[in-house]
């Protein structure tokens, strides 16, 4: 039969890839997204909450941290009513200091989301690095990393975070504690969450490392670190994305818990957890809105992010497709 392997007269280079957006819109993931009403609603809720948080300084009706705009006499104004002393209008009422609850929620979600996202990012970076190292090297390195992860996983995350928080209190000088508080919180939550990422990535790495595309790279002498980053990492990121999303929801709740316990962010930068703590003091005296609205926001945020994580897990799992 014909020689179909004759080289072409003039060499042609392969074109560069084009149309990322069109590709994404045509992908199976987008298809499964369009087919799931729950996911669409969850993503709309999550995106609006996140936008609200990010844009808070520009769109919030009040600046709850500007003492000049506050009037203590507005304290405990119920929802959907006008200020008795000015033209302020309180959609979700005002708290004990006369701050607009709606605005504090927007600013509070901002802190909550920032801490949650940074903590999750920190946990992912640490967990993925350790997981890749353990899975690729095996042997003693693997044993040490994974035993630490095992120990870590046998404690509740909140306990570890509290412990780290306590240590940080002792180490950081008192005059810097206020400004460092958020970063301590991020490290504390991050350190209590890395182990599940490490475990997942280690398992996936051990599978990928056996595959021949890794052998092919080893034969041409690619450095192990480059093999891990370029070859193995992209192939183990799927599950990380899924636990990362669910982990974000968990980190937000964990931050709220810590702040509720009073060890989280300082009162000058209230997060949703701080708002809930403040609110619960007034629950029994009838000012329910100070607790109710921040709590609902926290639930909506955690729930919608969690639902997105669930959908992502199903969409990325070829067996369920």
């Amino acid at each position: 039969m014909t020689m179909e392997n004759a080289p072409a007269a003039k060499p042609i280079a392969p074109p560069r890839p084009k149309g990322r957006l069109r590709q994404a819109l045509d992908s199976d993931i987008f298809y499964s997204y369009r087919r799931s009403p729950v996911t669409i609603v969850a993503s709309i809720v999550a995106v609006s909450l996140i936008l609200m948080a990010i844009l808070a300084p520009w769109i919030a009706p009040h600046d709850p941290f500007n003492p000049a705009s506050l009037n203590l006499m507005d304290g405990f104004t119920p929802p959907m009513s006008q200020s008795a002393f000015g033209d302020n209008w309180f959609l979700m009422g005002a708290d004990n200091q006369g701050r607009d609850v709606f605005s504090t929620i927007m600013y509070g979600s901002r802190v909550s989301l920032f801490v949650g996202a940074m903590a999750t990012l920190f946990a992912i970076t640490l967990g993925v690095t350790l997981g890749l190292t353990a899975g690729y090297n095996g042997g003693t390195v693997d044993a040490i990393i994974m035993r630490i992860a095992d120990i870590q996983l046998s404690f509740p995350g909140i306990l570890i975070a509290l412990l780290i928080f306590g240590i940080a209190r002792g180490v950081i000088p008192a005059n810097q504690q206020e400004s460092m508080a958020i970063w301590v919180l991020i490290v504390a939550i991050g350190l209590s969450n890395w182990a599940q990422f490490a475990r997942t990535v280690r398992g996936a790495t051990m599978v990928e490392r056996q595959k021949d595309y890794v052998s092919a790279a080893r034969i041409i002498g690619v450095h192990p670190v480059l093999i891990l980053i370029r070859h193995i990492l992209p192939n183990v990121l799927g599950p990380v994305l899924v636990i990362g999303t669910i982990g974000l929801a968990l980190a937000i709740i964990e931050e709220a818990t810590l702040s509720f316990l009073g060890v989280g962010v300082p009162p000058t930068q209230p997060s949703l957890g701080t708002l809930i703590r403040i609110g619960q003091q007034y629950l029994f005296s009838g000012e329910w809105w100070i607790l109710f609205f921040p709590a609902v926001t926290l639930v909506l945020l955690a729930l919608s992010v969690n639902l997105l994580g669930d959908w992502l897990r199903d969409a990325l799992n070829p067996k369920l497709r």
Binding site: A8, P11, A13, P14
Partner: peptide, 9 residues
């Protein structure tokens, strides 16, 4: 990229 095109051919 030219070399890759050549190899694919």
């Amino acid at each position: 990229r030219l070399r890759v095109g050549e190899l694919l051919t």
